[in-house]
Amino acid sequence: MSLFWDIVKAFLVGGAICAVVQIFIDKTALTPARILVCLVTLGVILGAVGVYKPFIDFAGCGASTPLTGFGATLAEGVRKAVDERGLIGALTGGLTGSAGGITAAIFFGYFFALIFRSKPRD
C-alpha cells in the first residue's frame, strides 16, 4: 500500500512542478534552454539551503526527476565533497554527484544518434 501512495505522491508533485513551469512557457518569452538553466540553478539553490532534501524524502522521484532535482544533486555532491576534502570539493563534488545522469545522456545520445536518423515533425 505504501508503494501505491509513493507513486501517487510522485505523480502529483512531479505533475504540479511541470504544470507550474508550463505557465512560464506560455506566458513569457523564455526559451526552453533558459527554462532548463533556471530550473537547474534553482535546484542548486534549494539544495544548498537544505529545502530540497526533505522535499525528495517526501515526494521521492516526483522531486528528484524534474531538473530541479538534478540541481539539488549537484549541491549535495558539492557539500559531501567539501565535508570530506575541503575547498577542493567545491570543484569536484558537483559533477561527481551528477555524473551518472550526464554521462548517460552523452553516452546514450551518442549511441542512438549513430543508429537513428531524424525525421520531419508532423
Binding site: 512531479g14 511541470c18 512557457i25 532548463l36 530550473l39 538534478f70 545520445g109 531524424s118
Partner: peptide, 21 residues
C-alpha cells in the same frame, strides 16, 4: 510541453536531438 521538458527527459532530449540532426 513542460511535462517532458522539466523531468530529466527534457535534458536527455536536448542532448540527443542535435546529435541526430
Amino acid at each position: 510541453g513542460a511535462g517532458t521538458l522539466v523531468p530529466i527527459t527534457g535534458f536527455s532530449n536536448a542532448v540527443i536531438s542535435p546529435a541526430l540532426d
